[in-house]
Design a protein around this nucleic acid. Structure first.
Lengths: 197, 197
DNA sequence: GTCTATAAACCGATAGAC
DNA sequence: GTCTATCGGTTTATAGAC
């Protein structure tokens, strides 16, 4: 038995684990200049290894992107699981939005993954994990609204969730990512969801 | 003086003007599979000409994309011009939203150009015309809100305009592009803009 | 685990005939 | 205006040494 470990497992042998650093750098570049325009050469260069080393950790470029989405899918699954256990949907929904935005801006990469998707929406069609993610989004829409929604009610719940992603969808604004802005977004989301027009 | 015309001018010599057909096909493909993933070979194939013919009508791929954005910029300039002439801002703003969505879904390519941008947001950074378009968007935000906005008010006007683009931002939904849905979006946009929280 | 070297494919773009 | 043919560059991905 050797000390060699599968690169897919967690638990870095040394800090700055290469696999995680590749993910970090790739995420940065995917946000900055787009998934398609980011080459593996560019990622490898910034990490400080060669292109071939990337292929040791990820079989293909798509698998590197998938590994990022998997984290986000797991986070959403946990949240959806919680929501489905709540007995009172009317009390669940506002708390759902609070937990959603809290999870987005807590520790971890979720906030940047959301921005990655906001800047590369076609990834949701392109990758298998993207289609899985879209399935989770649809289930969240279902949770946010009651049965048999009117067109307005349908749009309203979509809009409420979108509120919390304004900064991911818009091109860089001066005031992005400030706590006050996040609070304002949550307030707007709650108001949007709860208005009965 | 010959009959040869500059391809940039309007007035087709024959119906199905090749330049316009290239734009149509390119727009379709840019929406379906993304700007970066759409090759000139693919566009030429679907139009029924060779790649080289494309270069007669557009000096480069970017110029083809720019030509699409130019139409949208002109449409927005007209709308912004109207808004700046209105004496009463409080009466202008709801009407602005109505004209904005009417222009989007009237004759012309504007609706599909908006979807092109929703699916390829990085184009706004990439192309010179994209940055011009962003400038128009900023000016519309300024028109929609009064001076010295609170964080909530800032987000609110952004959200109102975003309402009218929900179908451009979301992955294909079953009920996209129906008049009832557009009416619901306009109602929501007006409500979002006018609520004073 | 990381390297050097290279394969194979595709891209945007150009030259020049017609 | 459209064609054939091709150039030069970049990309993803692989083979094999260490």
């Amino acid at each position: 038995m050797t000390h060699t470990r599968t690169p897919g497992r967690t638990g870095p042998r040394h800090p700055g684990d290469v696999r995680a650093r590749i993910q970090q750098v790739a995420l940065d570049l995917f946000i900055e200049e787009g998934y398609d325009r980011t080459s593996l050469r560019e990622i490898a260069e910034r990490v400080g290894v060669t292109k071939a080393a990337l292929y040791y950790h990820f079989p293909a470029k798509e698998d590197l992107a998938e590994s990022l989405l998997d984290e986000r899918i797991a986070a959403l699954d946990a949240l959806i699981g919680w929501a489905e256990q709540q007995p009172d949907p009317d009390r669940m929904r506002p708390e759902f939005l609070r937990r959603y935005t809290a999870g987005l801006h807590g520790p971890g990469r979720d906030a940047r993954i959301a921005r990655f998707l906001g800047r590369n929406p076609l990834v949701l069609d392109l990758l298998p994990a993207g289609r899985q993610l879209r399935d989770r989004i649809d289930r969240m829409f279902a949770l946010l609204g009651g049965p048999d929604p009117s067109p307005t009610a349908r749009l309203r719940r979509i809009l409420a969730l979108l509120c919390l992603h304004l900064d991911d969808l818009l091109p860089a604004e001066p005031a992005r990512d400030e706590p006050a802005r996040r609070d304002a977004a949550l307030t707007l989301a709650l108001e949007t969801l709860q208005t009965r027009g």
